[in-house]
């Protein structure tokens, strides 16, 4: 499996990253080297083996339906790079 320049574009967009044109080649090379290395896994026979999806041994760790207020409105907004008295603000989203 190899990443082409086109698929790199798509993946970068999915991840909301921008690859500078001058970095593109080196990055592709390094990514493809890594992928060639992880491709090794195809050598392992995993017939009949279930994927391991959870490392925890715990089951049914549920929370009681109770309200707890731990942040004030001001605290919630205080860290935002752009906000007004009530809302977080981002550049306009065209819908």
């Amino acid at each position: 499996m190899e990443i082409t320049p086109e698929s790199l574009e798509k993946i970068a967009h999915l991840a909301r990253l921008q690859v500078a044109p001058q970095d593109r080649e080196k990055l592709l090379e390094s990514l493809n080297k890594t992928i060639a290395w992880v491709d090794k896994l195809s050598e392992v026979d995993t017939t009949g083996i279930e994927p391991l999806t959870h490392m925890t041994h715990e089951v049914n760790r549920l929370r009681k339906d109770k309200i707890e207020q731990t942040l004030t409105h001001e605290q919630a907004l205080s860290q935002a790079p752009d906000h007004d008295a009530d809302y977080f603000r981002v550049p306009k989203v065209i819908d």
């Binding site: 809302y87 550049p91 306009k92």
Partner: peptide
């Protein structure tokens, strides 16, 4: 008429 979007979580 604004160039921003407001977010309420």
């Amino acid at each position: 008429d604004a160039d921003y979007t407001l977010i309420d979580l």
